[in-house]
Amino acid sequence: MATIKHYPWVRQFLGSASEYVVHLSNGSVRHEGVGQAFWFRPDISVLSEVPATDQELPVLFHAITRDQQDVSVQTSVTYRFGDPVLASRRLDFGIFPVTQAGQEASGRQQVGAIVGQLAQSLTVDLIATLDLAEALESGIGRVRTALGALGDDPRLAATGIEVLGVRVLAVRPEGDVEKALRTPVRERLQSEADRATYERRAVAVERERKIAENELASQIELASRREQLVAQEGANQRREAEETAAAALVSAKSDAERHEIAATAEAAAVRQLGEAAAAKEAALMEVYANVGRDVLTALALRDAAPRLPNIGSLTVTPDLVSGLLGALTNRTGESTSDAAPAAGR
């Protein structure tokens, strides 16, 4: 904002980069522009400051649709002062002299009222031709198109105002109507949400069922394989038992045949030994039959001698010697008598 310095009989004005100053002296323009600095006499001078930047004007108003429904329209109009000198003459932007202490110029409020009333007039005329549903559905675009005519309004052109752009932010009905209109959509969305929830639950249940079926199938497969394993183990054990029994049978047959062969051989050996012993005894008997009693006695004594206890001393009595001599004499005489007849023959 500009600064005015006070000196005796004169004043100094120091402008800013965002304000267009218009200096009138005795009704004639002495200085104008942005960022001006000059001296002026307060008794013959009038200063006005017009904004040199683009201005944003939010406008909110109500309109009635064709079916008698109230809607609120929220817009924003961007404008600037194309002819600041003309605007300073048509509107109050004066900053010196000030009529009352501290009172500001009302040019901005005047511009807001003018632009706002023009925008509201165009919008109300358009909304009056639309039903509520049409206004809510396509009202933003139609209102934007209708407000484009602000740039051609002769009053704004006569005031030095140029409209740069118009934005329509919202076209909304009353609160109760808006709530009623939202209810079907909300219900539909809720229904879709519920359906999505049910479908998600159904999918979850289906997945759980598939998981349970897979687990059951796995258990059945494990049980079947366990049954096959048990059957195979039983068959293996049975086969092992059969093989063991067959091996034992073969071993038993082999042992029996071996024992039979050994018994046969032993029996043959015993039989041969018996026959040899019998032949020996027969031969001995035949020999013993042809020898005398004395020889037999001597042989018996010889065979019994190893079994008799040891004799430490032997006492020979006369009776024993006489008996032996008598026996010997008789033996000799018999032998001689036997020999004589043989010689005579």
Rank of each mutant, 00 (worst) to 15 (best):
P58W: 06
L216V: 06
E199Q: 08
G333A: 13
F93M: 00
G333S: 11
V163N: 05
G141Y: 12
H23C: 04
A37V: 01
Q74H: 11
E281M: 11
R201W: 11
G35E: 02
D303F: 08
R209F: 10
L169A: 14
R345D: 00
V316E: 10
Q272R: 13
I95C: 06
Q74R: 15
H23V: 03
G175Y: 06
Q109C: 02
R41C: 07
T332V: 15
L299V: 06
K179W: 08
Y79V: 01
T65L: 00
V185N: 04
T197H: 10
R90M: 15
A300P: 01
F40E: 00
G15T: 01
A241S: 10
A340V: 13
L150H: 08
F13H: 09
T329L: 15
G148N: 13
R201Q: 12
V10N: 07
T3W: 08
A256V: 06
S88Y: 02
P84S: 04
A128K: 14
S218R: 12
A180G: 05
G15Q: 01
A157S: 11
G35Y: 04
A37Y: 01
A245C: 00
V34P: 03
L249M: 14
V77K: 02
A217R: 15
I4Q: 05
K210F: 07
L284D: 11
Q55P: 02
Q74D: 14
